[in-house]
């Protein structure tokens, strides 16, 4: 029975923000390389849909906060490593212009057994959707529009006992400093 990694031991990880596409097979090969204690790899790839919220989407542009993005993803990998017995994590997120069908994000997780790999992969995506500083702007027939955050993404993170406070921002006129759900600090 494995236990989550000891505090202080840093989980091996690959974290990249890039405009270029990525290759799942190549990324998993790097993730697995040299560690025969790995018995399970779970991966998730997010791709660009051609429709969103009732409008045709011709493409999108992803913006991020260089520096903070890497810190936020590093912190989320640490959070996953504290919860699950992991052997390695790869997170690749693209930025810049993307077209329908393009790959956006890869999360791949290695563990001894499948349970931790499946769960950690989902945990990492739930965390990334609400805590990493990326923003999507879609091109639609009506022009460009910034994608709204979804309360359902906050609910997904809440399943892990973490208050995301991303989409459910402060009510009109209420300062976030008052400690409403939108003011929750991120678990960093």
């Amino acid at each position: 029975m494995e236990t989550p990694r000891e505090a202080g031991a840093r989980l091996p990880r690959t974290v990249r923000i890039q405009t270029a596409d990525f290759d799942l097979g190549a990324e998993v090969a790097v993730l697995r390389a040299g560690d025969h204690g790995i018995g399970a790899v779970a991966s998730f790839i997010g791709t660009v849909r051609d429709r969103n919220d009732g409008a045709a989407v011709a493409g999108m542009t992803l913006e991020h906060y260089p520096g903070m993005t890497e810190k936020a993803i590093d912190a989320m990998v640490d959070a996953a490593a504290a919860r699950f017995p992991l052997l390695g994590v790869t997170v690749v997120h693209r930025v810049g212009p993307l077209a329908p069908g393009d790959q956006v994000v890869l999360v791949a997780v290695a563990s001894a057994h499948r349970g931790a790999a499946f769960q950690a992969c989902e945990f990492l995506m739930d965390y990334l959707k609400t805590q990493a500083p990326f923003w999507k702007k879609e091109q639609t027939p009506q022009g460009g529009r910034w994608v709204d955050a979804r309360v359902s993404d906050d609910a997904a993170l809440a399943r892990w006992g973490i208050a995301a406070g991303n989409a459910d921002g402060p009510a009109a006129g209420e300062p976030a400093a008052d400690g409403g759900p939108g003011a929750s600090s991120a678990p960093v």
Binding site: H64, A132, W135
Partner: peptide, 10 residues
């Protein structure tokens, strides 16, 4: 310091 809208990555 940075201010920004709720995040929408992934």
């Amino acid at each position: 310091v940075a201010f920004f809208p709720p995040v929408t990555g992934g």
